[in-house]
Computed example of a mutant assay.
Amino acid sequence: MSLRFRLASRNLFHDRLRFVATIVGIVFSIVLVTLQMGLYVGFRRTVTTMIDHSAANLWIVPAGTKCFEDPSLLDERQRFRALAIDGVVEAAPLVIGYAQWRLPNGTTTPVFVVGSELQGLGLHPWNVVAGRTDDLAIPGAVAIDQSYFDRLGVRGPGENAEIRDQAVQVAAVTRGIRSFTTTPYVFTDVNRARAYTGTSQQKASYLLVRLSPEADINRVRQDLRASLSDVEVLTSGEFRNRSRSFWLFGTGAGAALFAGALLGLIVGTVIVAQTLYSSTKDHLNEFATLRAIGSSSSYIYTVIIWQALLSAIIGFCGAAGVSAVVVRMTAESALPIVMTPTLTLGLLLLTVVMCVGSGVAAIVQVMRIDPTLVFTR
């Protein structure tokens, strides 16, 4: 085995220019696939970031709600019916909606308001880097993300602006809470959120439900559905899947990302296959020599497979380095490229499969060589 590995490595590294061209082709292909798949994973994660950061066991949503950003409303009085259900500890209103943020210079820009009760269950800002969440109790206080400073015309805590002709002041600043729609999130108290979005005091977008530890979630869901009208009762996982399904498959944006990831996979596979096949084909004379001196078919197979595996490992390491730089560069963008351990492992296996598959295709060509050709050179 060591002799075959040594022969494969020497055959691969003998022509350094060809070796570099092969690795560059593999790196380019894997980076292309990585970026497309990373965008797809990043999009899936970004569209549910609000749901992921909620501690609710159940979401009571208006019937027909498609995603978290759906502006439908429900009657908040249903909150008291929900609290009467055995096993329900808390049912907190959540108000969301679009509003106009007026900058100090008089221009306006749309924002997405998220309002919840500041104590207990709610959807509160996270990754706070300036100020405190408790500061939102101050009249007119809001929390925004630092990545939207320029767009909102502010520089940090203490800055003033207006929402729906009402004075607001930045009391807390977060880092990394970005909207995939590029509309800035603005966190505030639930009652002020109603005022900023023009929502009636008797209405709410959702009710967040927390259950007691011993409660049977399925039984509580059934009781809530029987007691409440014109609503749906969803677990966080169900609401997350519904939102992802809507944005990924119900809109052109998600379909485009999925198509891009699939296209990147196809193009990457073709490039790797062509690159490795050409590299192996350029060494046909060497393989003809091996056949002429009596090397077995399994011996030649192993040498070619080792070449493919070496190319796969070296190419993947190079692609991983390039991809890591790109991931870091897009970390603060509206749609970051995300690399998870599962995705990284999947791309490694994909690289190996592509390279070995290309090597197998080259084996067919090698085994068709007439060994006598070596004596006619």
Rank of each mutant, 00 (worst) to 15 (best):
A8G: 01
A8V: 06
R10M: 12
R10T: 06
F13S: 10
D15I: 03
A21W: 14
G25F: 09
F28W: 11
F28L: 15
V31L: 04
L32P: 00
V41S: 09
V47S: 11
M50I: 10
I51E: 13
I51G: 02
I51W: 05
I51C: 02
D52I: 02
W59V: 11
G64N: 05
K66H: 03
P71Q: 14
D75Y: 12
R77N: 13
R77V: 02
L83F: 07
I85Q: 13
L94G: 01
W101T: 04
G106P: 05
T109D: 12
P110E: 14
V114S: 09
G115A: 09
G120S: 03
G120R: 13
G122T: 03
W126F: 12
A130V: 02
A130K: 15
G131R: 13
R132S: 06
D135P: 01
L136N: 09
V142R: 13
A143K: 13
D145M: 14
R151P: 00
P157M: 15
G158S: 14
V173M: 15
T174M: 15
G176W: 15
S179T: 04
F180N: 10
T181V: 07
T181Q: 14
T183G: 00
P184W: 15
R192K: 04
A193H: 09
R194S: 02
Y196R: 05
Y196I: 06
G198M: 13
S205Y: 07
Y206D: 13
L208N: 03
V209I: 15
S212N: 02
S212A: 05
A215Y: 12
A215P: 01
R219N: 10
R219M: 11
R219S: 07
R221Q: 14
L224G: 05
A226T: 00
S227R: 15
S227H: 10
L228I: 07
S229D: 05
S243D: 15
F246I: 04
G250F: 03
G254R: 11
A256K: 14
F258N: 08
F258G: 03
A259G: 03
I266L: 15
V267N: 05
G268C: 01
T269H: 04
Q274P: 00
S278N: 08
S279H: 07
K281E: 08
H283I: 02
H283Y: 02
N285I: 04
L290E: 07
S297I: 14
S298G: 06
Y301T: 07
I305H: 08
S311N: 09
S311E: 13
I314N: 03
I314T: 10
F316K: 02
C317P: 00
V327C: 11
E332W: 14
I337T: 03
M339D: 06
T340G: 00
P341M: 04
L343P: 00
T344M: 11
C355Y: 05
G357D: 07
A361R: 09
A361Y: 12
A362P: 00
A362G: 09
A362Y: 05
V366D: 04
D370Y: 11
L373D: 02
L373N: 01
L373I: 09
